[in-house]
């Protein structure tokens, strides 16, 4: 259902949902939002890579649990040598972890599977500033080419017997690699601009036209917004 929805609706719904989650202040409602986000992911039918991506996110959250209890004032629940962990800090860490996880899951479910190449037209239709959008579209187009260039360079280094270690030779060689990738990317950028000039570029960019919104798009929008309002109301009342 979500995969077939209009990308504009998906982007706006995702932003509204994350905005709502960001305003939560109580632990139980944040947990509810987290549960809702998981539900959304299940409806969207997320792939395996999402869970691996979540591990990265939770790694950062772990840092909060390590630092916040010891840095915030409040009733002490445990001591570790000279350090005292406060329950306020624990609660705050849990709150942040739940909100961040809920936000990341919501984003993945709603816009995670939109091809970056197709996002340009969407952002344009949503009146995102052209300068920003153009940067985004060009990056989406060329990042894989630049990655391929870097890969070829590093393969040719390995083919000539390069084995990275922590020595001067390695750092210098990696410096050359990065420098070469940058130089080639710059050359590429110049050639792309020239090719655009050859076709008479004068500032107009051909974004694809998106089809009109359907009823089911608005249904998705309405349900996401309703959930957002619901959790905000629960949080404040």
């Amino acid at each position: 259902m979500i995969a077939r929805a209009d990308p504009r609706i998906r982007v706006v719904s995702a932003l509204l949902a994350v905005a709502a989650v960001s305003q939560l202040r109580t632990l139980p409602v944040s947990a509810a939002a987290f549960a809702l986000a998981i539900l959304l992911v299940i409806i969207a039918g997320a792939d395996r890579r999402l869970w691996r991506r979540m591990l990265h996110v939770e790694g950062f959250m772990l840092l909060l649990f390590v630092t916040l209890p010891f840095t915030m004032q409040g009733p002490v629940v445990a001591t570790l040598g000279p350090l005292a962990a406060s329950s306020t800090g624990m609660e705050r860490a849990a709150l942040i972890a739940l909100k961040v996880s809920a936000s990341v899951l919501t984003l993945s479910a709603l816009i995670g599977d939109i091809d970056p190449a197709r996002l340009g037209a969407t952002l344009h239709a949503l009146r995102v500033p052209e300068r920003f959008n153009r940067l985004f579209v060009m990056t989406a187009r060329y990042v894989s080419l630049i990655r391929d260039e870097a890969r070829r360079l590093s393969e040719s280094m390995r083919a000539r017997g390069f084995r990275p270690g922590s020595n001067r030779h390695t750092w210098r060689s990696y410096g050359h690699l990065v420098g070469m990738v940058l130089v080639r990317a710059l050359d590429r950028a110049e050639r792309v601009e020239e090719a655009m000039l050859c076709r008479g570029y004068a500032g107009r960019y051909p974004y694809a036209v998106l089809p009109a919104l359907l009823r089911r798009d608005w249904m998705l929008f309405a349900s996401v917004v309703a959930c957002g309002i619901l959790i905000l109301a629960m949080d404040r009342l």
């Binding site: 340009g120 060329y142 020239e194 090719a195 076709r199 008479g200 107009r204 974004y207 694809a208």
Partner: peptide, 27 residues
């Protein structure tokens, strides 16, 4: 003057084919 570059990737800068082909006429 239609100039066909040596490296197609220099010329095809739009994410999708139709956007790219429409680029010239739009200009």
């Amino acid at each position: 003057i239609g100039f066909l570059f040596q490296d197609s990737d220099d010329q095809l800068f739009c994410p999708t084919v139709i956007e790219d082909v429409a680029f010239g006429p739009l200009n």
